[in-house]
């Protein structure tokens, strides 16, 4: 029996019968990664302009990037905002998810949906709203303002991940711990947290990425010294197109890929 005629699963569908599915899956996967595979070679071009495929190869745009004060400052800003967003969104989102999960209150579901709105509302609306609001409270162009805005975007992710983790966790463990003499807080930190810790790590990494990749809110509320990497890239695209953008994109892809791999590894270890 050839591979073609052999069963692909318990349902006796042959690999031949599944061929269309394999082809469809490959097309979809290609569509997902082709943009990335175009940008990466472009970043190694020697040309002044974005060019694909590059006619000559060089590392000059990487030197350009690492040699530029402006780019380095923006990168540093983005990293700082990303880390701060992670440090705020992870505990706040975890606490909210825990509270809403444990609470038997009728409104808990509604509040949960409410907390997810930053994920549902178009980001451009959030950006405009935040911009005008920050104008009043003088938070535009500040690190604190950006961190708060990014935190609002990251909290829904954290809540979804932590709620999913709590669903597969037996809360009676916490009750037992309390009956055995632990305060509620201690029960959470000693019993619950160690068992959902990989989900918490996942949530933290994804909050960092949410902030680090974020463009739209950053364009509105960051500027000058606090301009993020993404904002600089966006203005650079508008003002003068050169392959530095491609080099930076490649580095960002690398960072995101590494973090997502870490997330995968962490996620698969919570039970």
């Amino acid at each position: 029996m050839s591979w073609w005629q052999s069963p692909a699963s318990d349902t006796q569908v042959t690999h031949g019968g599944r061929l269309w599915l394999y082809i469809l899956a490959i097309i979809i996967m290609l569509l997902l990664v082709i943009p990335t595979f175009i940008v990466i070679p472009m970043s190694f071009s020697d040309s002044q302009y974005l060019e694909f495929p590059p006619s000559t190869w060089s590392m000059r745009w990487y030197h350009e990037y690492f040699g530029s004060n402006k780019w380095m400052r923006a990168t540093w800003t983005s990293l700082r905002i990303g880390v701060l967003t992670m440090l705020v969104a992870t505990p706040v989102g975890t606490m909210a998810a825990y509270a809403l999960y444990v609470s038997g209150h009728r409104a808990a579901r509604l509040i949960f949906m409410y907390m997810l709105t930053p994920m549902i509302v178009p980001v451009i609306l959030i950006a405009i709203g935040v911009f005008y609001f920050y104008g009043r409270v003088k938070l535009n162009n500040s690190i604190a303002g950006l961190v708060l805005a990014h935190t609002a975007l990251a909290i829904p992710l954290v809540m979804i991940i932590i709620t999913a983790a709590l669903r597969s966790y037996d809360l009676n463990q916490e009750r037992v711990a309390r009956s055995l003499g632990a305060t509620r807080l201690k029960a959470f930190f000693v019993i619950t947290l160690p068992q959902i810790k990989f989900s918490v790590i996942t949530a933290a990494l994804l909050s960092f990425l949410t902030s680090f990749d974020e463009v739209i809110v950053s364009i509105f509320v960051s500027g000058g010294k606090t301009a993020t990497l993404t904002k600089h890239m966006f203005s650079a695209l508008r003002d003068y197109i050169d392959p530095t953008i491609a080099a930076i994109s490649t580095i960002m892809v690398l960072i995101s890929t590494v973090l997502l791999l870490l997330v995968q590894l962490a996620g698969s270890r919570d039970k």
Partner: peptide, 17 residues
């Protein structure tokens, strides 16, 4: 509060850590 009542408790699910 439960942690001050000093009672031993066994749950249906055992709830072992």
């Amino acid at each position: 509060p439960p942690h001050q009542r000093n009672v031993g408790m066994v749950f249906q699910s055992y709830a072992l850590f």
